[in-house]
């Protein structure tokens, strides 16, 4: 284990943001996951898209501090964005953003896949209804 992680990683690990599951869905939510415990990382995203805009995006993750931090970062990056922009978040971008070592790329690809799976049908899912 690294004694020290990059500052943003340490900060997200200690105080993670946008942790799921969604409490008040108010209607159909998008959900996507990837990975498994045996792979060292398992990530689930849940989102609510209203008028093509990501209103809520939360995650749950089993993984190392880099995985937890990258999931936090994803949710912060995409909240309030057009749902189509989710596809633009890549493992490489997360690695660069958070100074994550190359050896962790496989875990970041799991995050990327979970995100893709979450937003795969964003434009065909019925809109959320306010609770």
């Amino acid at each position: 284990m690294a004694d020290e992680y990059p500052t943003p990683v340490a900060r997200y690990f200690s105080a993670p943001v946008n942790v799921g599951p969604l409490q008040a869905r108010g209607g159909p939510a998008l959900r996507g996951e990837a990975g498994q415990i045996e792979a060292g990382a398992w990530v689930v995203f849940e989102a609510i898209v209203e008028n093509r805009v990501i209103g809520q995006l939360v995650f749950q993750a089993y993984g190392c501090p880099y995985v937890i931090a990258a999931c936090c970062r994803v949710t912060e990056l995409l909240r309030g964005c057009h749902a189509g922009e989710a596809a633009a978040v890549t493992a490489q971008r997360l690695a660069a953003d958070l100074d994550i070592p190359v050896g962790k790329l496989a875990s970041l690809l799991i995050i990327q896949d979970a995100l893709r799976n979450c937003f795969r049908d964003w434009d065909t899912t019925p809109p959320a209804v306010a609770p």
Binding site: Y5, F13, A41, Y62, G63, C64, P65, V67, I68
Partner: peptide
């Protein structure tokens, strides 16, 4: 149900082995 590297980092104020 807890990943080892994260657990050890969570225990960083303890000098223990993983």
């Amino acid at each position: 149900g807890v990943e080892g590297e994260s657990l050890l980092y969570g225990l960083r104020d303890l000098a223990v082995s993983a």
